[in-house]
C-alpha cells in the first residue's frame, strides 16, 4: 500500500565558513530559514521536527515563503538527503520532478533524453520502447523531439520532463515549484494526468506558490515556515 510517514524529521545543512576579514554584520531575513553557528561552522536548519502522514490518494500541496524548506522536504522524501534526525518510511515507487533540466543532456535529442531518463529511473529497454511514443504524444513536441534538448523553450522542456516522469505511473510523484512553466492547455493536461494518478491510489506532493494550482490539484495543504509545519489542513 502506498504511504508516506515522517516522524520528527529534521535536516541541517552545514556550511564551511570562508576566512574573511570583513565584520560579520548579521541581518534578519524576512524569508524562511534559520542560520546558526556551531563552532567554526554555520548551519542552516532547513527542516525542524516535521511529522506527517500521507496515505493512498492524498494530494498534498506544500506552501510557504522562499527558503521555508519545501524543496528540502521533497528531496528528503525522494531519498536524496538523509535526515539529520527523525525517521521516514515510504512505501511505493517514487518519481520526482525538481528542476526541469536535471537528468537532461543539452546536446542530446529529446528522444535520446527520454531513453537516458528512463534508464536513470530504472526502466527496462522494453518499457522505454513501449512508453516512447506516448511520451512524445503527451508532450506534443512533434518533430522537435529529434532536435537537441538545448533548442527547447522552458515550457517545451517542462512538457517533456512531466511526460517522462509520469509515463510509468509512479505511485508517489513529487513536484517542485516549476510546474507552472507550461501554457494553459498543458496545465490542463497535466492536471488530468495527476488526477488519474491519484485515482489509481497514488500520492502526489506538490510545492508551489500558485494557490489556484494547489486548490485545483490538491486535497491537503501544508504550510511550512522556517522549516516547521505551521498548519496542515
Amino acid at each position: 500500500m502506498t504511504a508516506i510517514k515522517l516522524n520528527n524529521v529534521s535536516l541541517v545543512y552545514r556550511l564551511f565558513e570562508k576566512l574573511t576579514l570583513s565584520a560579520p554584520g548579521r541581518r534578519r531575513s524576512a524569508l524562511g530559514g534559520n542560520i546558526a553557528s556551531s563552532g567554526t561552522k554555520q548551519v542552516v536548519q532547513a527542516l525542524d521536527d516535521v511529522s506527517f502522514e500521507l496515505k493512498a490518494g492524498d494530494r498534498l500541496g506544500l506552501v510557504g515563503p522562499n527558503g521555508s524548506g519545501k524543496t528540502t522536504l521533497l528531496k528528503v522524501l525522494y531519498g536524496i538527503y538523509q535526515p539529520s534526525a527523525g525517521t521516514i518510511s515510504i512505501a511505493g515507487k517514487v518519481d520526482a520532478l525538481f528542476n526541469i533540466s536535471i537528468g537532461f543532456r543539452p546536446e542530446a535529442t529529446g528522444r535520446r533524453n527520454i531513453v537516458l531518463r528512463g534508464l536513470i529511473s530504472g526502466w527496462t529497454a522494453a518499457e522505454i520502447e513501449e512508453k516512447m511514443e506516448e511520451i512524445i504524444d503527451f508532450s506534443e513536441l512533434g518533430d522537435f523531439i529529434d532536435l537537441p534538448f538545448k533548442a527547447y523553450s522552458q515550457g517545451m522542456a517542462a512538457r517533456l520532463a512531466f511526460a517522462a516522469a509520469t509515463a510509468l505511473e509512479p505511485e508517489i510523484l513529487l513536484m517542485d515549484e516549476w510546474i507552472g512553466a507550461g501554457d494553459a492547455s498543458f496545465q490542463e493536461k497535466a492536471k488530468r494526468r495527476m488526477d488519474e494518478l491519484a485515482e489509481k491510489a497514488g500520492i502526489i506532493v506538490l510545492a508551489s506558490h500558485d494557490d489556484t494550482l494547489i486548490q485545483r490539484v490538491c486535497t491537503k495543504r501544508m504550510v511550512l515556515k522556517n522549516g516547521r509545519v505551521e498548519s496542515l489542513t
Binding site: 528531496k75 525522494y78 531519498g79 536524496i80 525538481f98 528542476n99 533540466s101 536535471i102 537528468g103 536513470i120
Partner: peptide, 9 residues
Amino acid sequence: ASFIQGTTL
C-alpha cells in the same frame, strides 16, 4: 553535482 542533488542514483 546536478545529478547527485537531483537523482537517487
